[in-house]
Nucleic acid binder design. Structure first.
Lengths: 210, 210
DNA sequence: TAGATTGTTAATCGATTAACAATC
DNA sequence: TAGATTGTTAATCGATTAACAATC
């Protein structure tokens, strides 16, 4: 069942809302309209989404919070462990390395790579910086499935090619260029400019609203 | 005309593709199918989008690249200047401060704020770090319309409230919590976990593909 | 039981694609 | 002119919402 991007987004929102408001009580229930109200959406859509991931509710009661959380973790893959590496130890790469929130979702950053000799060996968020030619070894050894790409734009394609050659299956691309890669490699682009476009658009057109 | 998010994304993609492949020749043209092929989409949709932002093409020739670029800049607001501030001088805030790519889209970062006394006065990307109580002065003085929020999750709501009280019109939220703010404030959430969800989902279900 | 909530079918809505006439 | 490409209407598709019977 190929989920569209927005469904994943919604599941993530459900997850945060339920996790945040959950007492920890195994039997605690949440209704589709509680979720819908909090997220400003239709309750039917919430039930559809939950049905799609195999959660059954109870009439007059709602859905067991613990069950919903577990189902979302399962579908999104948070209950499995993945190794990831960061390629490009600039400011952004360092910031991501020091972010501790990935483990909660099953992602473990296990190494950082950079070609700048000055950065080699440097500790960043508890990780040593290795030279790019060590990438294939590390990928094969752990094994590593995900590469987080935080290199300068002009190096993005080459670094991505090296990652794919090493056996990486998915790339989280924080550089601007759209990478040209084999179809079997999954790419998620995190271009900052898309968010920026939405913001400048809203600022430009806000006078005409309300 | 309230554009949906995805339309803005597409316009941004058109912009990058045309800007990258453009010779600089004022008369150079690009056809809807050139754009569509490069971006793996239908050429009719490209023409619809371009028509929606008021660009007229020429049969047998295509659309003038320079005209399309100018129209997109106009719609997205890249041709106007905005001041922005960064609130929260952690690693991510510093990384954003040192990113030089915003000016191209009309956004100028003009100050950074943090409550940690150790960070005050520190230079980051050419900007001095100021205490949060200076925020209203700076916002009113420049004036500043956008706040980039890179504080720890637990301080996000409070910092957002202060920004709104100071007169900020839009917030670019890099923290996890969904902010509760007045309707007139535009919020763009940049939760890292949405991208992460897409990646772990793709890694979990990749075996069943192809 | 009565009534709140789920689960599901049908209707609606909007966005994308197909078809094709108009244009240069 | 012939033919490539635009512009636009009609058809399709998929996603969201409405309606309501089933359930506990």
């Amino acid at each position: 069942m190929p989920f569209k991007h927005t469904v994943l987004e919604r599941l993530m929102h459900y997850y945060y809302f339920i996790a945040d408001s959950w007492s920890g009580d195994e039997a605690a229930a949440v209704t589709s309209s509680q979720i819908a109200d909090a997220l400003h959406m239709d309750d039917t859509l919430v039930r559809k989404d939950l049905a799609a991931i195999g959660v059954r509710g109870q009439p007059r009661v709602g859905f067991k919070a613990a069950e919903v959380l577990a189902a979302i973790r399962g579908v999104l893959g948070f209950d499995k462990a993945y190794n990831g590496v960061i390629i490009g130890v600039g400011r952004l790469g360092s910031a991501i390395a020091s972010y501790g929130g990935f483990e909660r979702f099953g992602l473990r950053i296990c190494a950082m790579f950079d070609n700048d000799p000055i950065k080699l060996g440097l500790m960043q968020g508890g990780l040593v910086v290795l030279a790019m030619d060590k990438l294939p070894l590390v990928v094969a050894d752990k094994p590593v499935r995900l590469a987080i790409l935080t290199v300068p734009d002009e190096n993005a394609q080459e670094a991505a090619d090296q990652a794919v050659a090493a056996g990486i299956e998915a790339i989280w691309n924080f550089a601007s260029p759209n990478l040209v890669l084999p179809d079997h490699v999954f790419v998620r682009n995190e271009h900052i400019s898309v968010g920026l476009a939405e913001l400048t658009y809203s600022l430009t057109h806000r006078d005409s609203r309300a």
